[in-house]
């Protein structure tokens, strides 16, 4: 069974149509990369999957998005949905709290009060985000004292602490240096054993390195999607080929 199925998804910002009839499936425990020039709708699309677009005034959506066969706009409570579908943002956005409190925030708001359970979750999540060794001695320092790369891994740990099934990543490395980027990419490789990952990236090499599937967006349309190798080396659509070859020089 597919993890996510998107059927005929349209999205309007007021009068402007930002997504046009998107159809796409996501396999469980795979990494799907969304590529395309900026403004092509890939970030808008990823935000429809956990209904972050609900927060924006004047957004209209039609079509269906199924998560495990259930329509997330009709059959699933938005808060339940966001627990299942976590998100990592473009710029690291840790809360102005301690490292510990950042990770414990999610479990706490979902009703976990027990100190020992929280400690376990924090440790497990930080380990899964490959950050534990670097911060275990300063769990109670401000999260803002971490470096940019560490902050982004903290944000990943914060997402993992809620035990999602799907993780959305909106250009998670665009604000980071190459070494931090490499660490996050290794982490993605590790995480896909347990989670389904959808990542927006403007970096073609990154898409090639980390993803199993690739989807190419242009002007709000999904031009083509399939296994990454196929999209990269044997694209069906002329526009995809132009974009990829253009990018590779």
């Amino acid at each position: 069974m597919k993890k996510i199925e998107v059927r005929d998804l349209d999205l309007f910002y007021g009068e402007v149509q930002a997504l046009k009839k998107i159809n796409l499936d996501v396999e469980p425990n795979s990494v799907l990369a969304l590529i395309g020039p900026s403004g092509c709708g890939k970030s808008t699309f990823i935000r429809t999957l956990n209904r972050m677009n609900d927060l924006i005034e004047g957004v209209k959506i039609s079509g269906t998005v199924l998560l495990d066969g259930k329509d997330i706009y009709k059959e699933v409570d938005v808060i339940e949905l966001r627990k299942k579908v976590g998100m990592v943002f473009q710029k690291p956005n840790p809360f102005p709290m301690t490292v510990y409190d950042n990770v414990a925030y999610g479990p706490r708001i979902h009703g976990i009060r027990d100190k020992r359970t929280l400690n376990e979750i924090v440790e497990k999540s930080l380990k899964a985000a490959a950050l534990w060794d670097e911060v275990k001695d300063r769990l109670h320092h401000s999260a803002l004292s971490l470096s940019g790369g560490q902050q982004q891994r903290l944000c990943i740990a914060r997402t993992l602490a809620v035990e999602p099934e799907v993780i959305l990543m909106d250009e998670p490395t665009s604000a980071l240096d190459p070494i931090s980027t490499m660490k996050i990419e290794e982490l993605i490789e590790e995480l896909k054993k347990k989670y389904t990952i959808i990542i927006v990236t403007h970096n073609m090499q990154q898409a090639g390195r980390v993803s199993d599937y690739t989807a190419f967006f242009l002007n709000g349309e999904l031009v083509e999607w399939g296994p990454t190798d196929q999209v990269f080396y044997n694209p069906k659509d002329k526009r995809t080929e132009d974009y990829i070859t253009g990018r590779f020089g």
């Binding site: 808060i79 339940e80 627990k83 979902h110 009703g111």
Partner: peptide
């Protein structure tokens, strides 16, 4: 997930 907690939270 604890249903009662969800209701209280809403």
């Amino acid at each position: 997930m604890d249903k009662r907690y969800e209701v209280a939270r809403k």
